[in-house]
Amino acid sequence: MIDWSHTALTIGVILGGALTLAGLLIWVERRLLGIWQERYGPNRLGPGGCLQSLADMIKIFTKEDWIPPFADKAVFVITPAIVVITALMSFAVVPIAPSFVVSDLNMGVLFFLAMSSLAAYSVIIGGWASNSKFAFLGSLRAIAQLLSYEVFMGLSLMGAVLLAGSFNLSDIVDAQQQVWFVVPQFLGFLGFFMAGLAEAHRTPFDMPEAEAELVAGYHSEYSGMKFGMFFVGEYLSVILLSAMTVILFFGGWHGPWLPPVVWFVLKMSAFIVLIILIRATWPRFRFDQLLSFGWKVVMPLALINLLVTGGVVLWKAG
């Protein structure tokens, strides 16, 4: 029997937490980028500028919500919702602490992969429905990039799944009590993290929205809250990527002394900061380099990693 009140509470906490964190990240990212570029970043509103996201929100809500007359209206309107919905749906299977999870699905990993593959639609269709050159170019890039890196993402996290012997995320975390999977699965971790960056289209894989070349890529034509949804969706996927990395390779909530939730949040924040640091440091790939890097480096490495892991697991099983 499902404990409804517990489920409702968990949903509320995770939903609220994820959305608040995504909102806060708008400020955190700008502030950190500022600090790393030897300036301050937004520091006016509230202590340290932490109310900046609120101001951004108000601005974005009061902006004119313009639908281009040349756009495909219905598709144009539903697209931003897909980003946020798929990202939030993925949080349903993220175990934050023992039994602190909305749905402890048996195939949590697959659910996560399914949601991230559906998230590709928002980018692709959004660019198409905008019916403008830059948006369309952005979505063309997005298709090639997301399709390729989805494959690597799945392949490289299969190593962790093999070691744990389960698709269930809580089981995977529990299997890491002794040693975090990042040690035996370092290649897998690298592949997963890079593929995740590409899935979330963050630097150095942010070609679909490369400001320098494509205006804003697939969301060039979006304004007001629709643009805001894309923005929040991107931060949600950053949080999701960090959370999944922690769960799959860094022992989830395991850690000494502190309560599990604190450990989870700490590890996740470290990865969020790392992602922002990468954005502050690395340049963007060239597109053909991105694809050849994916298919010629990440793909073979992921396959070899999978093969070796599978061999070791079989050998141990005897």
Partner: peptide, 21 residues
Amino acid sequence: QFAAALEIIIYGGAIMVLFIF
């Protein structure tokens, strides 16, 4: 469950994307 997940990952996520492309 497995077939459901594969249905979305492979058909929904990969093949249909290529069709749309």
